[in-house]
Amino acid sequence: MAHVTAALRHRQDAAFSELGLTPAVARALHELDPDRPLPARDLAERLGCDRSNVTALVDKLEQAGLVERRTDPVDRRQKTLVVTGKGRGVRHRVTDVMSDSRLLAGLTDRELGTLRDLVWKVSDDGCPEPCEPG
């Protein structure tokens, strides 16, 4: 499982690099909803990191033209993060990268089912055998 995880991470990191993003910056962009501005403190909570780290991530997103800091119309003391038009396109590509399943493309349906069942079996979710999709 560690090998599969490392292979997935390597592919994602390479794809993020092609987009000009680090994995951390890509994940931050992915966590932002293009239709709902978000305070930086909420992004820090979603990412499970310190607000000072989010400031550096947002600086990079802003420098790339993917995010803008704007004053919250409800609470003018607070800044919100707004995904730009360019950011929407890049975010869509980041989402594609994060959901890319080409690593599993060589498996048959039966093999995918077996893999799914085995992953459920070793996870804490306790999916009954055989695991039902969905």
Rank of each mutant, 00 (worst) to 15 (best):
E45Y: 02
T80Y: 10
R27L: 14
D124H: 07
E132P: 01
Q12M: 13
T22G: 15
D117G: 14
V82R: 13
R9V: 11
A105H: 09
R91F: 01
D117N: 15
D125S: 07
A26R: 07
C131R: 12
A44W: 04
G65V: 06
V90S: 03
V25H: 05
M98V: 00
E111Y: 08
H92K: 14
R51F: 00
D35A: 12
L8W: 05
V54F: 04
S99N: 11
G89V: 00
P23S: 14
E62R: 11
R116A: 14
L112F: 07
Q63N: 12
E129Q: 04
E62Q: 13
D50E: 11
C49Y: 02
N53Q: 13
M98P: 02
V119W: 12
K86W: 04
P23D: 10
H30E: 10
V67R: 06
E111L: 13
A24R: 15
K79V: 07
R27M: 10
T5R: 12
R27P: 00
V90P: 02
L66P: 05
A56C: 00
R88N: 02
E129P: 00
G48P: 01
V82C: 10
S52D: 00
L43Y: 05
P133N: 11
L8A: 07
L21E: 06
E45N: 01
V54S: 12
V54T: 15
L107F: 15
D59E: 13
T5L: 13
D125L: 15
S17L: 00
K121H: 14
R76S: 10
D42E: 15
S101N: 07
R69I: 03
T22H: 07
A64K: 13
P37M: 09
N53V: 06
R70Y: 02
T95A: 15
G106P: 01
T5A: 13
D75W: 04
A14N: 03
H3L: 11
R93T: 13
D42G: 01
D42L: 12
G65S: 06
R76F: 03
L104N: 03
V74R: 14
S101T: 14
R51I: 08
T95W: 09
D42Q: 13
V90D: 01
L47S: 02
L43N: 05
R76Y: 06
C127K: 11
D35Y: 02
